[in-house]
Design a protein around this nucleic acid. Structure first.
Lengths: 348, 348
DNA sequence: CCCGTCGCATGACACGTGTAACTATATGTG
DNA sequence: CACATATAGTTACACGTGTCATGCGACGGG
């Protein structure tokens, strides 16, 4: 007993974490009364004087209820789990980070404790096992989480009331919140075609995890191109380095392209710099379109045309989460979260 | 019972989440045996044949242990809690995000479940209460969390074995992992002074939460300036907008300064653009130094001089966390996490 | 005086798990 | 044969909480 106090008069002095039993003893009531009072179920059951005594005792002891015990008794926890992608992680843009923060705040206001689970070893069902141990009320799988139908099944069997995915395509059994990357690519393609460009290069980053986004974006550009005759779409892999960008710039004349969809604004900046250093004119020799519409886009010269998602409607999401938790039997729903708009500027 | 199946032959058919009791029944053994087997405590206690039977039964039922029950019984959870800043959040840079991801991975390998707790309503002791409910093994408070000594006290009283802060200054009772922002500012100042600059402007962003970083950085520049005679340091508040930057550029000639520490690379880009649009030469009319040393810095023209932290030593941190959990009685330690280096380029 | 009612508080159980203590059956050992 | 010893399990309890059913005293109506 490494207590700091030298003289402890009571022989039984465990400075352990106080439980509701300790509160009850100090207040001179039963544990049941404490529970009723502290959970605001005391109306008409406990006299106000007793309520005050209980609250004072809890305060004095610094009582904090034990979430595990409460969860065990209740059969469910108020936890909403956000999962981390198994792959090293697609770089989470500033917009997406803000969105997550807002989402968590809204969930908190509804009484849920939202928690972002760290990365786990396995994928699919094995990862789901780790999440299921916490018996969360809901699991919201972020894009890049390898959520399989069998993982959804496992989660539901262990009592998870709602499983939702935030991502590009639905997963069987789970509610789907869709981020339509294909539409984003389509808008970029349409924009370039409307400006008379016909041979579009599309940057495909090699960064692990980003293919989740880049592949459907490319598909979107292709889809847009089929609506116009005499078009060509060329995927161009690119490392996130100056060297790779310079190499692309050197190779550009031989490619016979007239425009570029650069995956996002940061990659757009990278290649734009390389092209300019190589003596190519923008938008004269080639048009460039980015994505995300960061402040960055307006700071470049020429100013960068960029396509981005409208702000994600947090309220609708937490509404769905709440409803899904309350009525777990409702059939999985699919929601398109975003509308895509192009901010046209000088680069193409 | 809103079950979809119409005919349920067994009268007692709770498709509820299976417990270890169910596994025991299916395997034809006692619950204790199941526990021993599934926790790898079966050596010399349970025959291999029985072990196989138990594991098969668990697999068949899709058994997932109940973390709450386990926590309750064990008296502690293997949770390591990362806290979210109460303030809207200092924009988490890409570097810091990568660091957190790496940290969580390393903790996972040591058997801890790391979890990033969402934002909570109150601050200080009230927030600590919310964290304490989960009875985490350790709490790692990220920069911007308003962790007070009394909050540390409360956490420890409710059984948290280790409380650590990642931030600018130590908190009484908690281990401190220091990110020396002041040194970062000092290096920036020294660099400019060495190049003959004497009148240094320092960008102070108005974004909420960033003052946590900007104030000590300013102090660092000031400290460096006192080592040289005839110097002047001028703080300059700036919104993260083009207008604010343009306004600063217009005002610049009247300020009588010859150099600028721009808080970080992104702000540096913002003001550099405004200065160039206003016809000022860099580094001729003024030198600019950024921070973080992003790829961005090498893409700007002139290339941006930037000061940044060496990579944060994840291994040392998880080592400390692990040790602090195992030996909670060890006195709080203070660790400087980072060394600061200047990447000198063309902007100043 | 008895019975129903109301206000206030309590006893007791269940949630699912880990583990110390114990039992029962075989295996040597003197 | 008696006795230690290993093997293969089981029984029983504790962790901290929420809540149903119950108890107890007082009050009012018949």
């Amino acid at each position: 007993m490494p207590s700091g106090m030298t003289q402890s008069p009571e022989p039984t002095s465990p400075p352990a974490t106080p439980t509701s039993t300790d509160v009850a003893r100090l207040a001179g009531v039963s544990r049941a009364t404490v529970s009723y009072v502290l959970n605001a179920q005391a109306a008409g059951r406990v006299s106000t004087r007793t309520q005050d005594r209980v609250r004072a005792a809890a305060e004095e002891l610094g009582y904090v209820p034990h979430a595990a015990a409460r969860t065990l008794r209740a059969g469910h926890s108020g936890l909403v789990l956000l999962t981390t992608p198994a792959t090293p992680i697609p770089r989470i843009g500033a917009l997406f980070g803000d969105f997550l923060m807002e989402l968590q705040g809204a969930l908190h206001q509804l009484g849920y404790t939202s928690v972002w689970h760290g990365p786990v070893a396995g994928a699919g069902e094995q990862a789901a096992r780790a999440w299921a141990e916490l018996r969360p009320a809901a699991v919201l799988a972020l894009p890049g989480t390898g959520l399989t139908p069998s993982a959804v099944e496992l989660l539901k069997r262990s009592g998870t009331r709602a499983v939702l995915t935030l991502g590009m395509q639905p997963v069987a059994g789970a509610h789907a919140l869709l981020l339509d990357q294909e539409m984003l690519g389509a808008r970029a393609g349409t924009h370039l075609l409307e400006r008379g460009r016909r041979r579009i290069g599309v940057i495909m980053p090699t960064e692990s995890g980003l293919d989740l986004f880049s592949v459907p974006r490319l598909a979107g550009v292709r889809a847009a191109a089929t609506l116009e005759t005499g078009t060509h779409v060329e995927p161009l892999t690119l490392d996130c380095t100056e060297e790779s960008a310079a190499e692309l710039a050197a190779r550009w004349p031989r490619l016979g392209l007239d425009s570029l969809f650069a995956y996002n604004d940061e990659y757009a900046m990278l290649v734009m710099r390389a092209f300019q250093d190589a003596g190519l004119a923008i938008p004269g020799d080639l048009a460039i379109v980015g994505a995300d519409d960061l402040l960055l886009a307006r700071l470049l010269r020429p100013r960068l045309t960029s396509v981005h998602f409208d702000t994600i409607p947090t309220a609708r999401i937490v509404g769905l989460v709440d409803r899904a938790i309350r009525e777990p039997e409702t059939a999985p729903e699919t929601h398109q979260l975003t509308r895509v708009v192009v901010a046209a500027r000088d680069s193409g």
